[in-house]
Design a protein around this nucleic acid. Structure first.
Length: 354
DNA sequence: TAGGATATTGATATCCGACG
DNA sequence: CGTCGGATATCAATATCCTA
């Protein structure tokens, strides 16, 4: 009765993943959606489509769990636009759900699970890390070694080139979720790697992949260094040069997103710089004096979101200063926006308390 | 709350392949 | 042959987390 269900889940173009439901058919569609979301770390709400035999296996909206078949394929449809998703700090932190009318959608990044924009994150760390496809060359070599491994039990000692390719691709995948993965995150990845490619298992390592974890750690640290050099805000915020006065120590107060926090430290919108956004901030001050001008103010507030975030993360401003710089944030109409800046508020409270 | 384990950045060492 | 650059690895100094 409860034989496990094996499903193919299509998350996007060129991105299909395997999902195993040990308990068999889920109790409800909601239950299944929830499982899919947590398994693959999807932050957005989704619905599912199944392949209907009556219509040449076209994808149709699911209406009943009986449509889920072992070895069936389900397609994930994301419900919210990425713009709306961007604006929320996180679902777990927001105490009330806040609906935002998205202003201009000019620079909306298409949400595709395979090619996400480097400036924003839509995913939380998945409960099961999916090892990505490597280059054709690397996959070929691994497949050959996996076969040899299955037959004779011989492990592969990867060439520096292969190892580098593997680390590079894994780091890219990890970075989609986190710039600062924890030790256990990296253990997840290393374990997933040697599970998918048994030839990469390490002899003499207590869990068979300790070395991979260490290498991934180095890789991520070096990746951050590289991105820091390129001016990626999320990591430059933690560079020594950006630390003030007495805090000039590497490991002091490393800023990273809180649990499940999305869009923690976004890059500025395309074509915008700190200088141009500072001008926008000044413009907001004068726009505020006009009547019936809410939509203009809201649009400019949304546009300057990244700038405000950096101000808070970098400077820990005094609440009075911040309020005088961004009065629109404290008006009744923008009260909901304050919720979206929840950790802004937390930081400010912290400053006030001290 | 003390202290050991582990994490951070940034500088640097080591290795290796590409290139002239 | 030398040297340049990229990738991986190591180090120092320090902060923070975890456990007892």
């Amino acid at each position: 009765m409860t034989s496990p269900l094996r499903l193919r889940i299509i998350l996007g173009e060129d991105d299909a993943r395997k999902l195993i439901l040990p308990a068999g058919t889920p109790v409800s569609i909601e239950d299944l959606c929830h499982t899919v979301k947590t398994s693959f770390g999807l932050q957005q709400d989704i619905r599912l489509q199944y392949q209907d035999e009556d219509f040449g296996n076209e994808f149709m909206n699911m209406s009943d769990v009986s449509e889920v078949k072992d070895k069936g394929t389900l397609k994930v449809i994301f419900l919210q636009s990425p713009q709306e998703e961007n604006v929320r700090t996180s679902q777990s932190q927001a105490t009330e759900s806040v609906s935002i009318s998205s202003a201009d959608t000019d620079d909306t990044e298409p949400i595709s699970s395979s090619g996400s924009s480097p400036s924003s994150r839509h995913w939380v760390w998945p409960s099961v890390f999916t090892v990505p496809q490597f280059s054709y060359e690397a996959e070929f070599e691994l497949e050959k070694a996996n076969t040899a491994c299955a037959n004779g039990g011989t492990l592969l000692n990867p060439s520096p080139k292969l190892k580098s390719q593997i680390l590079e691709r894994l780091a890219e995948e990890i970075y989609k979720f986190k710039a600062y993965p924890t030790d256990s995150d990296l253990t997840d990845v290393a374990e997933a790697l040697v599970k998918k490619h048994p030839c990469l298992r390490e002899q003499g390592s207590f869990n068979g992949c300790y070395g991979w974890k260490i290498s991934l750690k180095y890789k991520m640290a070096n990746l951050r260094t590289k991105l820091r050099g390129l001016g990626c805000t999320e990591v430059t915020i933690n560079s020594i040069k950006n630390k003030s006065g007495d805090n000039r120590q590497a490991a002091f107060n490393v800023k990273k997103p809180k649990r499940a926090e999305v869009n923690y430290c976004p890059q500025h919108p395309k074509g915008q710089t700190s200088e141009s956004l500072e001008q926008e901030r000044v413009a907001i001050l004068s726009e505020l004096t006009k009547r019936n001008n809410d939509s203009v103010v809201s649009a400019k507030m949304e546009k300057t979101f990244s700038y405000r975030r950096q101000e808070v993360l970098q400077g820990q401003p005094m609440v009075a200063d911040f309020k005088s710089r961004w009065p629109a944030l404290f008006t009744a109409r923008e009260a909901s926006v304050v919720k979206m800046h929840l950790d802004v508020a937390c930081n400010l409270c912290f400053v006030v308390q001290n």
